[in-house]
């Protein structure tokens, strides 16, 4: 079973040389720490930076330089700042090749819910709806089950949707799962996790091939 950094490490393998990548808040942010050295990749944060670098050294934080999670960051050489309309032109215009974001629920037809629990939590969607409506590659980073132990990979989402039919791949603490033709397809299992454990933790239809390789970390 993977921890959050393990999930991020596996998702980093999805990143290709020359890609612009948008990382969401939480586990997705950790992906930046696991990119293969020497690979040319730029991180976009939708509040207005391309070429986002690591957190600043203590004492050099700049209130004017933050990421979409409102965390203080740095800018890499070659970075650029822009306004929010330009930022979402990059996103909607498909100039960003990969979006990684978290989710509360994902359904077998690729719907995603991650912005609202009616009556309980209303934080808003931020840029998530724009991101999932446009990106060619959307990878969801999340735990396979919620705190109550219930599957987050469902036949249909029960929570208000963020986007419909948009998620292609989910990387969880248990598995890599692809979504196509209205079903989940098991691609890889996490180190030490059995196929049966993944089947038990997946509520939506899961297609299991005869051979399910373990992730190469």
């Amino acid at each position: 079973m993977l921890d959050k950094n393990g999930i991020a490490t596996r998702i980093a393998q999805e990143v290709r040389d020359g890609w612009y990548v948008n990382l969401g808040i939480g586990i997705p942010t950790l992906v930046a720490n696991h990119i293969t050295e020497g690979m040319e990749v730029e991180f976009q944060s939708e509040n207005g930076i391309l070429g986002m670098g690591p957190f600043p050294l203590e004492g050099s934080e700049d209130a004017d330089l933050i990421n979409a999670g409102k965390q203080t960051i740095t800018a890499m050489p070659g970075a650029v700042y822009f306004d929010s309309a330009t930022s979402f032109a990059m996103i909607r215009g498909r100039h960003v090749q990969l979006t990684v974001l978290g989710a509360m629920e994902v359904s077998a037809n690729g719907d995603i819910a991650n912005w609202k629990i009616p009556g309980k939590m209303v934080k808003g969607m931020g840029g998530a709806m724009d991101l999932v409506a446009s990106a060619d590659n959307i990878v969801v980073a999340m735990m396979h089950t919620n705190r109550a132990g219930e599957s987050k990979l469902l036949p249909t989402c029960s929570l208000p949707l963020t986007g419909v039919g948009c998620v292609k791949r989910v990387v969880t603490n248990l598995a890599v799962v692809d979504i196509k033709d209205g079903a989940f397809h098991l691609i890889e299992r996490a180190p030490g996790v059995s196929v049966q454990e993944i089947i038990d933790a997946t509520a939506g239809t899961l297609i299991v091939p005869s051979d399910v390789p373990e992730m190469t970390m």
């Binding site: 050294l57 209130a63 933050i66 409102k70 965390q71």
Partner: peptide
């Protein structure tokens, strides 16, 4: 004031 909402740093 330019308040920082999430102060995140790395150690030298």
């Amino acid at each position: 004031e330019k308040r920082i909402e999430q102060r995140t740093v790395r150690t030298r």
